[in-house]
Nucleic acid binder design. Structure first.
Lengths: 97, 97
DNA sequence: CCTTTGATTAGATATCTGTTAAATTAGATA
DNA sequence: TATCTAATTTAACAGATATCTAATCAAAGG
């Protein structure tokens, strides 16, 4: 159904791991819900220090789940499309039973 | 589409975390592919010591991803149904944009 | 240039995690 | 009972991780 190119298991594990923290799962959902969102706004939503926020965003970023770019003073993040779908596929939407 | 009862974020994070290890992701997939599978057979497939296998199975078990029952000498594991689908939903198959 | 604001990076530390070896539990069989 | 196999548990330890403080980088405005 939706499988342009299957994720390596190593990469998928790293992505699940990135999502495997309550703080990061919330952040990812918040980012995925938004079209794009500024770090400063995420700081307003979550109750995290700026360094801790950066740390978690870096986890999500290096896992290939989100990407960000600076526009002037602010940095905007957005979810990388298809990744979530690929992970979902991998989770066994394809279980034959 | 498939949302009988949404997962708490805490639980979902624990489940993603359990899947966030290459060894456990493989194990989960192997178990989900099978109708049910004996630990001894998993030991044959993966190259793990018995204690390490138990450790990882316990992670998946306490996260609510798999369940096992003893039948005689052997213990059989199977994937708990719907959980993967709920996680997939949570990942944003349902993103409205 | 200096200061302010937004964000990341570096260093320190306490906690968590994956693996191993040794011990233990559970069931089957003699 | 003793013994064998299947699986888990315990204890120990190295390596990873989350959070904090302090320092640094990047852009904007005075």
């Amino acid at each position: 159904m939706s499988n342009q190119q299957s994720l390596s298991e190593e990469l998928a594990a790293r992505q699940f791991k990135a999502l495997g923290d309550p703080v990061r799962l919330r952040l990812y959902q918040q980012i995925a819900r938004s079209d794009e969102i500024c770090v400063c706004e995420l700081l307003g939503v979550a109750n995290l220090s700026a360094p801790t926020m950066s740390h978690h965003l870096k986890s999500l970023r290096t896992a290939g789940l989100i990407e960000g770019d600076r526009r002037g003073t602010w940095i905007y993040y957005r979810a990388i499309s298809n990744v979530a779908t690929q992970l979902a596929d991998l989770l066994g939407a394809n279980v034959p039973v």
